[in-house]
Amino acid sequence: MALNRKVGFFKGLKYKGGGPMWAWILHRLSGLAMVFFVGSHIIAGFLTQQFGSDVGIAINIVYENWIFQLVLFFLVIFHAVNGLRVTLLDLWPALLEYQRESIWLEWLVIIPLYVLILFTVLKSALGL
């Protein structure tokens, strides 16, 4: 009998698609992470305001933590800039020839922006 065609998550991850494929995976994961963050923010707000719940306060403590915020900022910036890159490439297919260069450009935008955020968050969190 022939083997099933199914490609599992980890089998797919092992495919060496390089930078463009990892950008796509990170885009998906960062999207999911934002859904999780917004969801937990809504639940925490609801629980705290309606019931004065300790669970809501505990969730608040987690996402107000500076380490959580640094991760979140990175994911949001990456998702936004990568999404913009893909949108521009989809709108102007002639640019698709330069997709590798577009990824370098993307990191050229992300890195300085993130360094600025890193500096601001750490300054506030650690009282630098």
Binding site: G18, P20, M21, W24, L89, D90, P93, L96, Q99
Partner: peptide, 26 residues
Amino acid sequence: CRTIFNCTVACPREIQITQAIGEVKK
């Protein structure tokens, strides 16, 4: 097509596949 580019990288004839798909989408 999610503009992932694996096809373009894999093509042994170096066809700009994602670009061709983009042109069809457009």
